[in-house]
């Protein structure tokens, strides 16, 4: 086993990955480029988007042109503007959901792995069962009960990924727990809470980063799925999954731009995070255990 180095922050491993010339750097850079493109789009939406995404700005069903880069939809909204503003919704929902599942999954995983015993058995049993349940169906159930709103969608998605974090963190904690430097910390009389937060957690930074990238990729698809089923936002809020569903009948009539661009955005954004996760996990050779 390589010796574990305590990173200063969660971001420093990423910085290290970027500067090292290991294989997989291409994947990482491609992923980062895609992700940054979409984040930039979301942040600067008011400046990038040429039209109001919720208003009828031209005739309906105009094909892509210089005036409307991605055409207009059935009620004359500019598709490109809806894509740009839609990235805000997706990123907002997905990041809130992921942060929420991290906030619950990571402490529980740490506790379960570190303490062991009854707490561990009960938590693991619940988390494993939840993990084995179809994520999208679980999210649908929760979202249906909570009602459609971006925050509710985020909560529904958050539930789905708690077990992912829990399982990973618990497994890693178990393997770190028995290493020498933890024994040393015990011998020095450092309290458990401090050992968990100061000695174990920093060593999980790499793992968390990998799981984060992969679960965000997955959550993007789940969010799009929920909104495709009408469970995320209410019209006229711009949302990729919803626009895809509304565009379906027209798509088959040949108005391909109504569906093509929102779907492509979902895929690209998910792929951006998946590429980052893939490249990082390859270097960690965690690829198979996730």
């Amino acid at each position: 086993m390589e010796t574990r180095i305590k990173p200063k922050s969660l971001l420093s491993p990423l910085a290290k990955q970027l500067t090292s010339r290991l294989p997989g750097r291409g994947l990482l850079l491609a992923g980062l480029a895609i992700v940054l493109l979409f984040i930039g789009m979301a942040v600067f939406a008011p400046w990038i988007s040429p039209y109001d995404p919720t208003k009828m700005v031209d005739k309906p069903f105009l094909p892509p042109s210089l005036k409307h880069l991605m055409g207009t939809n059935r009620i004359g909204q500019d598709v490109f503007s809806r894509i740009v503003w839609g990235s805000r919704i997706v990123l907002y929902v997905v990041f809130s959901a992921t942060l929420l599942s991290m906030a619950i999954g990571i402490p529980l995983g740490l506790l379960s792995g570190y303490r062991g015993g009854k707490i561990d058995r009960v938590l693991s049993m619940f988390m494993d069962s939840m993990y084995s349940f179809p994520a999208l169906i679980l999210a649908i159930a929760i979202a249906a009960v909570l009602g459609p709103s971006p925050m509710n969608t985020a909560i529904a998605i958050a539930f789905v990924y708690i077990p992912t974090y829990f399982r990973m963190i618990r497994g890693q904690t178990l393997s770190i727990k028995n290493q020498l430097f933890i024994d040393a910390a015990h011998a020095l009389g450092i309290p458990d809470k401090r050992i968990m937060l100061r000695h174990i957690l920093p060593n999980l930074a790499h793992t968390i980063l990998v799981v984060f990238s992969l679960s965000v990729a997955d959550a993007i698809l789940t969010e799009a799925g929920l909104s495709f089923l009408g469970l995320s936002v209410t019209p006229p809020t711009p949302d990729w999954g919803y626009d895809l569903r509304v565009g379906q009948p027209f798509f088959l009539n040949g108005q391909w731009w109504l569906v093509f661009f929102p779907g492509l955005s979902v895929m690209l954004l998910a792929m951006g995070f998946a590429l980052i996760g893939e490249a990082l996990s390859e270097r960690l050779s965690l690829a198979q255990s996730i």
Partner: peptide
């Protein structure tokens, strides 16, 4: 394998519908 994993099912399904059905 990465692209297949990140395909959005409704989108991919509709493209297949359009190509093979329409």
């Amino acid at each position: 394998s990465i692209v297949a994993y990140t395909l959005f099912i409704p989108w991919f399904g509709m493209i297949l519908q359009y190509v093979f059905g329409v």
